[in-house]
Nucleic acid binder design. Structure first.
Lengths: 185, 185
DNA sequence: AAAAACATTAAATTTTTTCTTAACATAATT
DNA sequence: AATTATGTTAAGAAAAAATTTAATGTTTTT
């Protein structure tokens, strides 16, 4: 057959893939991963599965690097280990559904944000109340404590909202409001 | 008056503030800022305004550090410059409405993600179509090109959704679906 | 217009992070 | 059970990022 045509087509296809790989890779900083982990994910996106040696080969990096990158990607649910019988190498697949990645990444992060801040606010509020309810403390200090109390109390509105946002993403309720495929005009 | 009581109250208030400052600071990595910028924001959150020298003093860091941190925070709209007449020092205020910070940060980021990836996909698709519509190319290669085309074409569903999510946050439409204050049970 | 007050840029240093090589641990095959 | 293939941890090297000091630029005041 026409091998030279094929070679040309392969090169062109590589080029096309590389454009997408670069774009994914460059925007993966949003997900808090290193450029090399971003690059690895984007590379895996075009394969059905890869093992550590193939990754090392493809990105020309060391195996421990691949091992740590792939672990990081597993933590944010963007890569899954697949049990592949026959070979004793571990194989991994990239999550190809971006909705899934979006959900698991942001839910995880926002949960942490809510939990951490709500906890701190709860403790701080106890102390602030004690100050502004204490008659022996000067009015100036008491007013300041009161002002701080009100500010952090008010911020709870945001954290509670973020909590509900997370829940509606997890339950996929959000797609009722904002469907994956928008209705026709 | 009772100064010793006041001293104690001040210390207690500092302690309360510090808990909240630490929590904000620790979760600010989500916003892609360095720990010191996170710390600066959290500190400013409890003040109505600060100038560079006050920041330097408070965090015991150099002025150029404060200058770069504050610039980074301005970029993501979490700090605003205020024109303060009388003093020739520039003064800055922290955005205290977390909804506002959420909106401007994520909209900015998601816009970038959508734009970058949609652009790359558009270009890649042109090349992939050329391959799989070319009869002189072997079926194996053409099928692969077709498969890749379909995968990236399908990912556009996600990017368009993300675009609509961003728009509904900007327009505040999202609060119709998910009110800031939830309705009573 | 000169001097002073401030902010920013540049260069150099320190710290942190990432990456690699080498050693180790684990599990599978013979 | 010994050997081999594979993955991970540890330690050291390289690269990147953050921070500081020093220099420069810019604006305001006198």
């Amino acid at each position: 057959m026409n091998e030279s045509k094929d070679e040309h087509a392969i090169e062109k296809m590589e080029n096309a893939k590389n454009q997408v790989i670069s774009a994914i890779s460059e925007t993966m900083d949003l997900y808090g991963v290193t450029p090399s982990a971003g690059n690895l994910y984007a590379t895996m996106y075009f394969k059905d599965q890869m093992n550590l040696d193939e990754m090392r080969e493809e990105l020309s990096m060391s195996k421990p690097s691949m091992s740590t990158s792939v672990r990081k990607l597993q933590e944010i649910d963007m890569v899954k280990k697949t049990f592949q019988r026959g070979s004793r190498k571990h194989t991994y697949v990239a999550e190809k559904d971006f909705f899934h990645s979006f959900m698991s990444f942001y839910c995880q992060m926002w949960d942490r944000e809510v939990k951490m801040n709500m906890e701190a606010i709860k403790h701080a509020e106890v102390e602030l109340v004690e100050i502004f309810e204490d008659d022996t403390v000067s009015n100036e200090i008491r007013d300041e404590a009161k002002a701080h109390y009100e500010m952090i109390e008010n911020s709870k509105v945001y954290y509670r909202w973020l909590e509900r946002l997370t829940a509606s993403i997890r339950s996929e309720e959000i797609f009722e409001f904002l469907p994956k495929n928008p209705p026709e005009e």
